[in-house]
Protein backbone atom coordinates (compact mmCIF):
# COMPACT_ATOMS: atom_id res chain seq x y z
CA UNK A 1 0.00 0.00 0.00
CA UNK A 2 1.26 3.48 -0.83
CA UNK A 3 2.29 5.17 2.40
CA UNK A 4 0.47 8.39 3.32
CA UNK A 5 3.81 10.09 3.88
CA UNK A 6 7.20 9.07 2.62
CA UNK A 7 10.18 11.29 3.38
CA UNK A 8 13.47 10.37 1.74
CA UNK A 9 16.86 11.89 2.53
CA UNK A 10 15.44 15.28 3.52
CA UNK A 11 17.94 18.10 4.01
CA UNK A 12 17.18 21.62 5.15
CA UNK A 13 19.34 24.54 6.29
CA UNK A 14 18.69 28.06 7.47
CA UNK A 15 21.69 29.79 5.93
CA UNK A 16 24.75 28.00 7.27
CA UNK A 17 22.86 26.20 10.00
CA UNK A 18 21.93 22.66 9.01
CA UNK A 19 18.57 21.92 10.59
CA UNK A 20 17.67 18.63 8.95
CA UNK A 21 20.44 16.34 7.78
CA UNK A 22 19.01 13.35 6.00
CA UNK A 23 15.60 12.40 7.32
CA UNK A 24 13.90 9.19 6.19
CA UNK A 25 10.45 8.55 7.52
CA UNK A 26 7.44 6.56 6.37
CA UNK A 27 3.94 6.98 7.75
CA UNK A 28 1.25 4.46 6.82
CA UNK A 29 -2.47 5.11 6.81
CA UNK A 30 -3.80 5.14 10.36
CA UNK A 31 -0.36 5.63 11.93
CA UNK A 32 0.00 8.13 14.74
CA UNK A 33 3.63 9.19 14.76
CA UNK A 34 5.00 11.42 17.50
CA UNK A 35 8.16 13.43 17.01
CA UNK A 36 10.00 14.06 20.25
CA UNK A 37 13.33 15.66 20.99
CA UNK A 38 14.83 18.75 22.55
CA UNK A 39 14.28 22.26 21.18
CA UNK A 40 16.28 22.85 18.03
CA UNK A 41 16.36 19.18 17.07
CA UNK A 42 14.38 19.95 13.91
CA UNK A 43 10.97 18.48 14.77
CA UNK A 44 8.92 21.55 13.94
CA UNK A 45 10.97 22.28 10.82
CA UNK A 46 10.31 18.75 9.60
CA UNK A 47 6.60 19.23 10.10
CA UNK A 48 6.67 22.58 8.31
CA UNK A 49 8.49 21.02 5.36
CA UNK A 50 5.70 18.47 5.02
CA UNK A 51 3.20 21.35 4.85
CA UNK A 52 5.49 23.21 2.42
CA UNK A 53 5.74 26.16 4.79
CA UNK A 54 9.51 25.70 4.57
CA UNK A 55 11.54 25.08 1.47
CA UNK A 56 14.05 22.25 1.55
CA UNK A 57 17.23 21.76 -0.43
CA UNK A 58 17.53 18.05 -0.89
CA UNK A 59 15.44 14.92 -0.70
CA UNK A 60 11.80 14.24 -1.46
CA UNK A 61 8.53 14.28 0.41
CA UNK A 62 5.73 12.19 -1.04
CA UNK A 63 2.14 12.36 0.10
CA UNK A 64 0.03 9.43 -1.07
CA UNK A 65 2.66 8.79 -3.74
CA UNK A 66 2.82 12.35 -5.05
CA UNK A 67 6.13 14.20 -4.70
CA UNK A 68 5.35 17.61 -3.24
CA UNK A 69 6.93 21.02 -3.58
CA UNK A 70 9.47 20.36 -6.30
CA UNK A 71 9.94 18.62 -9.60
CA UNK A 72 12.97 17.55 -11.54
CA UNK A 73 13.27 19.29 -14.87
CA UNK A 74 16.24 18.49 -17.10
CA UNK A 75 18.29 17.42 -14.09
CA UNK A 76 17.40 20.62 -12.20
CA UNK A 77 15.19 20.85 -9.17
CA UNK A 78 12.46 23.48 -9.42
CA UNK A 79 9.84 24.69 -7.00
CA UNK A 80 6.33 24.02 -8.28
CA UNK A 81 4.06 26.93 -9.20
CA UNK A 82 2.11 28.49 -6.36
CA UNK A 83 -1.28 27.13 -7.38
CA UNK A 84 -0.02 23.56 -7.34
CA UNK A 85 1.73 24.11 -4.00
CA UNK A 86 -1.54 25.42 -2.59
CA UNK A 87 -3.34 22.29 -3.76
CA UNK A 88 -0.68 20.03 -2.27
CA UNK A 89 -0.78 21.88 1.04
CA UNK A 90 -4.46 21.08 1.29
CA UNK A 91 -3.59 17.35 1.24
CA UNK A 92 -2.29 17.82 4.76
CA UNK A 93 -3.92 19.71 7.61
CA UNK A 94 -1.91 21.64 10.16
CA UNK A 95 -2.61 22.78 13.70
CA UNK A 96 -0.22 25.39 15.02
CA UNK A 97 1.23 26.15 18.41
CA UNK A 98 -0.29 29.64 18.29
CA UNK A 99 -3.67 28.45 16.85
CA UNK A 100 -3.56 31.17 14.18
CA UNK A 101 -7.31 31.49 13.91
CA UNK A 102 -8.47 34.38 11.76
CA UNK A 103 -9.48 36.97 14.37
CA UNK A 104 -12.04 38.75 12.16
CA UNK A 105 -14.12 35.63 11.55
CA UNK A 106 -16.36 33.60 13.83
CA UNK A 107 -15.38 30.04 14.70
CA UNK A 108 -17.79 28.79 12.05
CA UNK A 109 -16.40 31.09 9.34
CA UNK A 110 -12.86 30.07 10.24
CA UNK A 111 -13.72 26.45 9.53
CA UNK A 112 -15.76 27.27 6.42
CA UNK A 113 -13.13 29.40 4.70
CA UNK A 114 -11.01 26.57 3.29
CA UNK A 115 -14.08 24.57 2.33
CA UNK A 116 -15.48 27.48 0.33
CA UNK A 117 -12.24 28.85 -1.16
CA UNK A 118 -10.12 25.75 -1.67
CA UNK A 119 -12.71 23.01 -2.04
CA UNK A 120 -15.17 25.34 -3.82
CA UNK A 121 -18.11 23.99 -1.83
CA UNK A 122 -21.37 25.93 -1.65
CA UNK A 123 -22.17 27.85 1.54
CA UNK A 124 -24.73 25.30 2.76
CA UNK A 125 -22.52 22.28 2.27
CA UNK A 126 -19.51 24.06 3.79
CA UNK A 127 -21.59 25.13 6.77
CA UNK A 128 -22.84 21.57 7.33
CA UNK A 129 -19.32 20.14 7.27
CA UNK A 130 -17.98 22.92 9.49
CA UNK A 131 -20.75 22.41 12.02
CA UNK A 132 -20.15 18.67 12.04
CA UNK A 133 -16.49 19.16 12.95
CA UNK A 134 -17.14 21.95 15.43
CA UNK A 135 -19.54 19.57 17.12
CA UNK A 136 -16.91 16.85 17.09
CA UNK A 137 -14.39 19.06 18.92
CA UNK A 138 -17.07 20.24 21.32
CA UNK A 139 -17.27 23.79 20.00
CA UNK A 140 -20.66 23.84 18.28
CA UNK A 141 -22.17 25.94 21.07
CA UNK A 142 -19.60 28.64 20.40
CA UNK A 143 -19.65 28.58 16.63
CA UNK A 144 -20.68 32.24 16.39
CA UNK A 145 -17.98 33.43 18.79
CA UNK A 146 -14.92 35.23 17.55
CA UNK A 147 -11.46 33.88 18.48
CA UNK A 148 -10.94 36.80 20.86
CA UNK A 149 -13.94 35.60 22.85
CA UNK A 150 -12.60 32.08 23.29
CA UNK A 151 -10.04 30.58 25.66
CA UNK A 152 -6.78 29.22 24.28
CA UNK A 153 -7.99 25.65 24.50
CA UNK A 154 -11.22 26.51 22.72
CA UNK A 155 -9.33 28.37 20.00
CA UNK A 156 -7.06 25.40 19.48
CA UNK A 157 -10.02 23.05 19.17
CA UNK A 158 -11.55 25.32 16.52
CA UNK A 159 -8.18 25.44 14.74
CA UNK A 160 -8.05 21.65 14.71
CA UNK A 161 -11.59 21.55 13.32
CA UNK A 162 -10.57 24.05 10.64
CA UNK A 163 -7.70 21.81 9.54
CA UNK A 164 -9.51 18.53 9.72
CA UNK A 165 -12.69 19.73 8.00
CA UNK A 166 -10.59 19.87 4.83
CA UNK A 167 -10.47 16.07 4.99
CA UNK A 168 -6.67 15.90 4.78
CA UNK A 169 -4.85 12.61 4.26
CA UNK A 170 -2.50 13.50 7.08
CA UNK A 171 -2.88 15.79 10.10
CA UNK A 172 0.13 17.67 11.39
CA UNK A 173 0.12 18.88 14.99
CA UNK A 174 2.84 21.36 15.88
CA UNK A 175 3.14 21.60 19.66
CA UNK A 176 -0.57 22.29 19.89
CA UNK A 177 -0.57 22.50 23.68
CA UNK A 178 2.67 24.40 24.24
CA UNK A 179 1.12 27.85 24.52
CA UNK A 180 -1.84 26.75 26.63
CA UNK A 181 -2.33 27.18 30.34
CA UNK A 182 -1.87 23.81 32.08
CA UNK A 183 -5.56 23.41 32.86
CA UNK A 184 -6.46 23.77 29.17
CA UNK A 185 -4.02 21.17 27.86
CA UNK A 186 -6.20 18.14 28.49
CA UNK A 187 -9.23 19.35 26.53
CA UNK A 188 -7.08 19.73 23.43
CA UNK A 189 -5.27 16.43 23.92
CA UNK A 190 -8.65 14.74 24.32
CA UNK A 191 -9.64 15.99 20.88
CA UNK A 192 -6.42 14.68 19.35
CA UNK A 193 -6.87 11.33 21.10
CA UNK A 194 -10.41 11.11 19.82
CA UNK A 195 -9.26 11.71 16.24
CA UNK A 196 -6.43 9.20 16.62
CA UNK A 197 -8.84 6.58 17.88
CA UNK A 198 -10.90 7.22 14.79
CA UNK A 199 -8.01 6.15 12.54
CA UNK A 200 -6.81 9.59 11.42
CA UNK A 201 -3.22 9.51 10.19
CA UNK A 202 -1.16 11.94 12.24
CA UNK A 203 2.27 13.38 12.66
CA UNK A 204 2.57 15.04 16.05
CA UNK A 205 5.30 17.26 17.43
CA UNK A 206 4.89 17.32 21.17
CA UNK A 207 6.55 17.86 24.51
CA UNK A 208 3.82 15.91 26.30
CA UNK A 209 5.63 12.62 26.76
CA UNK A 210 2.83 10.81 28.50
CA UNK A 211 0.49 11.78 25.69
CA UNK A 212 3.02 10.66 23.05
CA UNK A 213 3.37 7.32 24.79
CA UNK A 214 -0.38 6.79 25.05
CA UNK A 215 -1.53 7.92 21.65
CA UNK A 216 1.25 6.96 19.24
CA UNK A 217 1.74 3.89 17.13
CA UNK A 218 5.31 5.02 16.55
CA UNK A 219 7.60 7.45 18.37
CA UNK A 220 10.48 9.17 16.61
CA UNK A 221 13.27 10.73 18.65
CA UNK A 222 15.07 13.49 16.79
CA UNK A 223 18.48 14.79 17.68
CA UNK A 224 20.54 17.40 15.83
CA UNK A 225 18.56 17.21 12.62
CA UNK A 226 18.48 13.43 12.41
CA UNK A 227 16.23 10.63 13.50
CA UNK A 228 18.24 9.16 16.33
CA UNK A 229 15.85 6.45 17.37
CA UNK A 230 12.38 5.27 16.42
CA UNK A 231 10.04 2.49 17.33
CA UNK A 232 6.83 1.62 19.13
CA UNK A 233 6.24 3.76 22.23
CA UNK A 234 6.94 0.89 24.64
CA UNK A 235 10.38 0.41 23.12
CA UNK A 236 11.31 4.09 22.85
CA UNK A 237 10.11 5.02 26.33
CA UNK A 238 10.72 1.65 28.01
CA UNK A 239 14.09 0.69 26.63
CA UNK A 240 15.91 3.62 25.02
CA UNK A 241 18.95 2.38 23.11
CA UNK A 242 20.98 5.56 22.98
CA UNK A 243 22.35 7.61 25.82
CA UNK A 244 20.95 10.78 24.29
CA UNK A 245 17.40 9.47 24.31
CA UNK A 246 17.80 8.14 27.84
CA UNK A 247 19.11 11.55 28.89
CA UNK A 248 16.30 13.35 27.12
CA UNK A 249 13.65 11.15 28.72
CA UNK A 250 15.22 11.53 32.15
CA UNK A 251 14.82 15.27 31.83
CA UNK A 252 11.21 15.07 30.63
CA UNK A 253 8.17 14.56 32.73
CA UNK A 254 6.39 11.32 32.02
Amino acid sequence: MTPVLKITDLHKSFGDVKVLTGIDLTVQKGDVVSLIGSSGSGKTTLLRCVNLLEEFERGTIEIAGEAIGYREEGGRRRRLPERQIARQRAMTGMAFQQFNLFPHMTALKNVMLGLVKTKKLGQDEARAIAEKWLDRVGMIERKDHFPGQLSGGQQQRVAIARAIAMNPQLMLFDEVTSSLDPELVQEVLAVVRDLAADGMTMLIVTHEMRFARDVSTKVVFMDQGRIAEEGPPEAVFGAPKSERLAGFLANSEI
Binding site: N51, L52, L53, E82, R83, A86, R87, R89, A90, T92, G93, M94, F96, Q98, N100, L101, F102, L113, G114, K117, T118, K119, A159, R162, A163, M166
Partner: peptide, 13 residues
Protein backbone atom coordinates in the same frame (compact mmCIF):
# COMPACT_ATOMS: atom_id res chain seq x y z
CA UNK B 1 0.97 32.79 11.42
CA UNK B 2 -2.10 34.23 9.69
CA UNK B 3 -0.58 33.71 6.25
CA UNK B 4 0.70 30.28 7.24
CA UNK B 5 -2.69 29.19 8.52
CA UNK B 6 -4.31 30.38 5.29
CA UNK B 7 -1.71 28.53 3.24
CA UNK B 8 -2.17 25.37 5.27
CA UNK B 9 -5.82 25.16 4.27
CA UNK B 10 -4.80 25.50 0.63
CA UNK B 11 -5.52 29.18 -0.02
CA UNK B 12 -3.56 30.83 -2.81
CA UNK B 13 -1.86 34.14 -2.18
Amino acid sequence: GQTEAAKSIGLTF
